[in-house]
């Protein structure tokens, strides 16, 4: 038992990178800024090259491995995979953003009402959270997307509806803790109204949580969008999101066209990973309780 503080220190040590030079936070921020710039560039390029050369069917250049002319190769119709990948990512990004924003909004509403609207509201919301958390995301997603008839709308609703509970639970816990904080009690005894306390004390504390939650939801949303599109219930083939590209590529994998799946797949991983890091960076920057990190 005497070893407990030691163990605690050891886990902290693992979780927290050493304060190195230059400031760890500065690095995170620069990384995040670069990422945002890269994404904006990506979007710009994707919209500029929209109807351009790259996507035209060119049977003379079909199924080419990566080369200088086509860095990521071409597909079975001779379309440039780099352009397709970028466009697919951009589309996925938009879908992910919309879905995670919607998910965050649901989470905020559910979490706050569970924490602040009394016991019945808490029970209902908690039951819903448990229900959604107990089902595998993909199963729920497939069901919702199926009911909505597939397409963009189905994906958006599906992803938003499956991804709110974990964040809502966090918001609920946070709001409950804040509600019972000493300074909120003091504020009440100084005659401040519920709304005043909500807007001045609670919301400013929860905003960073929501922002971080939204950022961390984002990679999930993209991945699930890709997954559901991959199995054919998501976006239609004429909206070539990354999932569509991956799904189509599978048919050609055993023909040796490895680049069709590998590069878009890696690009998706990088995007997801980058947003994950951005989310963690944001939470470190915005949380005064982590001043040591």
């Amino acid at each position: 038992m005497m070893e407990r503080p030691e163990m605690k220190a050891a886990t902290q040590r693992k979780a927290v990178p050493a304060a190195s030079l230059p400031s760890g936070r500065l690095r995170l921020l620069v990384g995040a800024a670069l990422l945002v710039a890269a994404l904006l560039g990506l979007g710009l390029w994707a919209s500029l090259s929209g109807g351009g050369e790259g996507l035209r069917t060119n049977l003379a250049e079909r199924s080419l491995p990566p080369s200088w002319g086509h860095p990521l190769g071409t597909d079975w119709l001779g379309r440039d995979m780099l352009v397709r990948t970028v466009q697919g990512l951009w589309l996925s990004l938009q879908v992910g953003l919309l879905a995670s924003l919607a998910g965050t909004a649901i989470a905020a509403a559910a979490g706050l009402s569970a924490a602040l609207l009394g016991r019945t509201a808490d029970r209902i919301v908690s039951w819903l959270m448990d229900l959604f958390l107990s089902l595998p995301h993909l199963v729920t997603l497939i069901l919702i997307a199926f009911v909505c008839g597939g397409g963009l709308r189905g994906v958006l609703i599906g992803v938003a509806l499956t991804h709110w509970p974990s964040l809502a639970r966090l918001i609920r816990a946070e709001a409950m803790q804040l509600r019972s904080a000493d300074y909120v009690a003091v504020s009440r005894s100084l005659g401040k109204s519920r709304v005043w306390i909500m807007t001045r004390h609670l919301l400013p504390h929860l905003l960073p949580q929501l922002l971080t939650g939204c950022l961390l939801l984002f990679p999930h949303a993209i991945l699930h969008e890709a997954a559901i599109t991959f199995i054919g219930l998501g976006l239609p083939p004429d909206q070539p999101a990354i999932g569509v590209i991956l799904s189509e590529s599978m048919r050609y994998l055993n023909a040796g066209l490895w680049w069709l799946a590998v590069f878009p797949g890696v690009a998706l991983l990088l995007l997801v990973g980058a947003f994950d890091r951005l989310g963690h960076a944001a939470s470190a920057l915005l949380d005064p309780g982590r001043s040591q990190q």
Binding site: A181, D182, Y183, V186, S189, L190, G191, H201
Partner: peptide
């Protein structure tokens, strides 16, 4: 404002 005001043991918890 309440006529009785409380000061607690841990000031850091009593302020935002």
């Amino acid at each position: 404002p309440h006529p009785a005001q409380l000061v607690l043991q841990h000031p850091e918890r009593a302020v935002n």
